[in-house]
């Protein structure tokens, strides 16, 4: 099972099939990715979920840890990079 399939399952488990699959598609669209092919892709997806807030944020935090354990690079989230000199 790919990372994407497993993530859809998680969303479907929590939100039901219609809303879960819709949330997956919408979030994937926000990442600009066509599919989740690597731990780094899963990390981007997780960060997009975190930005959604609430329960999706909690799911995103879990998936972020999972992506790191699967070998995602530890680059900081783009919106957390300080622009201070």
């Amino acid at each position: 099972m790919s990372g994407g399939d497993d993530i859809i399952q998680r969303l479907v488990h929590v939100y039901g099939p219609t809303k879960g699959e819709a949330l997956y598609r919408e979030t994937l669209e926000r990442t600009g990715l066509a599919e989740l092919r690597s731990p780094d892709d899963e990390m981007r997806f997780a960060d997009a979920l975190i930005d959604s807030g609430g329960l999706l944020e909690a799911m995103g935090r879990s998936l972020r840890v999972r992506a790191l354990l699967r070998g995602a690079s530890r680059a900081p989230r783009a919106d957390r990079i300080s622009t201070a000199p």
């Binding site: 998680r10 929590v14 909690a58 799911m59 935090r61 879990s62 840890v65 999972r66 790191l68």
Partner: peptide, 10 residues
């Protein structure tokens, strides 16, 4: 704890 966190909703 990290491994457990990765399984929340999993």
């Amino acid at each position: 704890m990290e491994h457990a966190q990765a399984e929340v909703f999993g």
